[in-house]
């Protein structure tokens, strides 16, 4: 079986698994990294949102064989170690989620937070800040309906990032 190597939350990992198994299952079923959640498997719910080389991606829709050894995959478990937390236990976006008490059942929230961080990074690259239109365009679904507090938390997280 092919050996797959990539960087997961700051550490190089190698797994024996076929090329076409999607990264989500490699993370969850083989490596036991369960922060990224399954909600659809077809890149529409965004519950699995994580980062690939610092940008938002959906591991349910990437074959593990398409990862290269130097590719950096960051899941919610590794978010606080990305440097943006400045030594704190939590990333500023996670702290904002706590301060706004956003989570209800919590199932979608790792994906929501990872998407929120990617959004702030994206608008910064574009030299601007998060607008209402950006918030409206977030595709992560929350069946508990926590959208109002998500919007408030992103505003706080953006200020402190």
């Amino acid at each position: 079986m092919p050996r797959q190597t990539f960087v997961l939350n700051g550490r190089s990992v190698t797994v024996d698994v076929h090329d076409d198994v999607r990264v989500l299952w490699v993370l969850r079923d083989l490596l036991g990294v369960t922060g990224p959640k399954y909600g659809c498997g077809i890149n529409v719910c965004k519950a699995c949102t994580s980062h690939l080389n610092g940008r938002a991606f959906n591991p349910c829709s990437v074959r593990v064989g398409d990862l290269r050894p130097h590719d950096r995959v960051t899941t919610i478990e590794g978010l606080a170690d990305t440097g943006e937390a400045a030594g704190a236990d939590l990333h500023p976006m996670q702290q904002a989620w706590l301060d706004r008490d956003v989570a209800q059942c919590g199932y979608c929230q790792p994906g929501q937070i990872m998407a929120a961080v990617a959004l702030v990074r994206k608008v910064r690259r574009e030299g601007r800040s998060v607008t209402d239109a950006d918030l409206d365009a977030i595709r992560n679904i929350c069946r508990c309906g926590t959208y109002t507090r998500i919007r408030e938390a992103i505003a706080q997280g953006e200020r402190r990032m």
Partner: peptide
């Protein structure tokens, strides 16, 4: 705030499919 909020935002909260 919810007592499980920290687990939820760090990915530590366990649902049925997260159990081993």
């Amino acid at each position: 705030g919810r007592i499980d909020a920290r687990d939820a935002v760090t990915g530590r909260k366990r649902f049925a499919t997260d159990l081993r």
